[in-house]
Nucleic acid binder design. Structure first.
Lengths: 218, 218, 218, 218
DNA sequence: CATGAATGAGTATTCATTCAT
DNA sequence: CATGAATGAATACTCATTCAT
């Protein structure tokens, strides 16, 4: 069901004429293709189903390429998460501006979130976290991709709370942690019951709370 | 790191004289041992690392026993989740009473939650959810074990909100959903950074909010 | 597709009131059920697919019963072949009489053969022979079930050739061998292409030859 | 008991300098070795005994190679049948010529047949057919290897019947079917009783009939 | 630069068989 | 008399990984 959203290569700049892969090819292209393949495999097949074969098959190249370019499967997976995460974060940053009211902010976020959910990019994170217990090496890489989001969310919260009377009292860091955890939890729960209106309902709750907060004056 | 907490067999009643396992033995004991083994394997090795070998090894019996008693690994896994989930839910139900104030309630829950987190029983759920993408058959079983928790949380919220002035306005079902999702999200995030004080901080936030709510009068 | 034809118990005599199986049951009944199960499993699943599980499942009893009653799977299989073979042979003997002309004889045989083919009883033999290479112990048992057929066929040929001028010159033993081998070969070939009109065409050839032979005078 | 006869590689031309097997080796050699191993395993151990282990062991390579090169055991098996069948058919074609009398033809065939029987190549076919019930996927492959033989036999019969007065009346297609089925049936019967003079006796019968037919004028 | 070939160790699952009851 | 429980060894197949080219 996930809609296709451009994976790596966040920008739309014209890519140079794609040479075919093989001897004398552009190594970056292969790497990019592998990363895209890893992303789509993680989304479609989950962490357990994401094997060298599955990735190489999707990338249309040899399994050995994974080792040649990334040194191993897990390293490729981390790279994939990084690319995906950075791409999405950039999108969020460009779509949210400082002068939005709390209500506007939440509306904007909801739109982005739906993009995430539908494209499957959120799933990437939860799938990889699921692999941590079996493969602890993943942890560090995941954390690195996670961290920028937290500072970003915290910042947004700080900014938004300016328009609220008791704003300065809000523990923006903890709230950021809460919001981020909640998003992840919702994603996981969606996997269980496929009940995608859960996020809708929670956003409605958010709008309600935002309305209440704003009406309490700046 | 998870502390050992008795898995199946919620009660502490003296178990009847344990016959040795083997041909002609008590099958229930073997089943129980397999379930316990599955639980501990899921906690220690994750979904990906929980193989027939790993389970049978922990249970001290032959891999074939898994198939004899449960028909397959996934079936054993959801049986394990069910046992674990029911056991924990019973514990929650017996530990929380109707006449607790909101603040008391939260304090009680925090205690139980720490038990969950430390024993690893919460991890069971997230590990299995991680397997859904690769093995969709798990979904139904997970959902079945999840559902009772939601109704339980909802009831608690309804009960607790009576002591709050605007309590009747609260969408208890959505809040239950939110709380449950948040717990799951936190568990997942803990796996990433091992930052176990996150829950402490969030509970503090909860206490704060509870205090605010209660001070607004009943 | 094989039509059901009563397996063991060649006669239609009233069977004594069937007690259920279990402690104090009639051992003969269990044996009979196991044999019938083995026959149908060989027909449906082939030699490779005929496992203890498959047989016991069809017989509705425990796998251990096979060992208790027959000592092993192969022994049960041999017993099954024997029962099936004897049953069919009895049917042939009762359906063919001495005073049939060659043409009548062939017509009668065709009818019986179609029974065999459709019920799958012929398949029993070829499936078991397929197992000989892997399990040489089968050989003797199969040979024992095969031998009576050859003497029977030889006798029929001898009798029938009396109505043919050059009848005494015919090497009836070799011809019996030929006919029997041909039947087996046809059965095997049918498995490959499912072309069941092959036997029809060959019987037509037989009728032609019979007509020719008879027209040459007695 | 089967005598060794070169399996694949019908010609005796000097094979190019055989590189050792292993990473980066000539894949054709590995494939050939696997096919030869499959053939000899089918002959020696039968269909039931022909496992990945047995084949890889005989080929001196890893079981996984079977899957790498053929995708699965059954596919390797039908590849083996194809190679064997084509090799033998080529041998037959080169050994039989148009200008042979019926008697000469039968004599020539007898010689070839003895080769088949002794080398075990005929057994290949019957073993695989025995597997059809359990593994229907084999059917198509077997049929494909079978079909050329039928057209070949039919042609031979047509050609030979020219030297017989009533030759044009002969239903060569049905006769081809009969002959081929008979050969298969005889092979199977040989497995049961090890009575290898059966074919001798049948060939004698054939010679007799041929003599009769030829004496009836062209 | 990249890959085809190969493999050892592993996967889930099923086998025939045994034994205590 | 018969069976439920159990198992060691096998089954087909896939894994991540390596290496020669």
């Amino acid at each position: 069901m996930p809609k296709k959203v451009p994976e790596s290569g966040e920008s739309e700049e014209a890519t140079p004429p794609k040479r075919k892969r093989g001897r004398g090819a552009d190594p970056e292209q292969t790497k990019t293709e592998l990363i895209d393949a890893a992303i789509s495999s993680l989304i479609d097949e989950g962490y357990r189903g994401t094997t060298a074969r599955s990735i190489a098959g999707r990338a249309g190249c040899n399994q050995a390429a994974i080792y040649y370019h990334f040194g191993g499967i897990d390293d490729l997976l981390i790279a994939a998460l990084k690319v995906s995460s950075q791409g999405r974060l950039a999108r969020y940053k460009s779509a949210l501006s400082d002068d939005q009211s709390l209500t506007e902010l939440i509306a904007a976020i909801e739109e982005l979130y739906v993009e995430d959910r539908e494209s499957g990019h959120l799933s990437l994170l939860t799938e990889l976290v699921g692999g941590i217990t079996a493969t602890p090496e993943l942890r560090q890489g995941i954390e690195a991709s996670t961290e920028p989001w937290l500072t970003f969310v915290e910042e947004r919260i700080k900014q938004a709370s300016k328009s609220v009377s008791f704003g300065k009292m809000l523990p923006s860091k903890d709230l950021a942690d809460l919001v981020f955890s909640l998003v992840i939890g919702v994603e996981l729960r969606n996997k269980v019951d496929g009940n995608f209106d859960r996020s809708d309902r929670l956003f409605r709750l958010g709008h309600l709370a935002a309305g209440l907060a704003e009406s309490s004056g700046s």
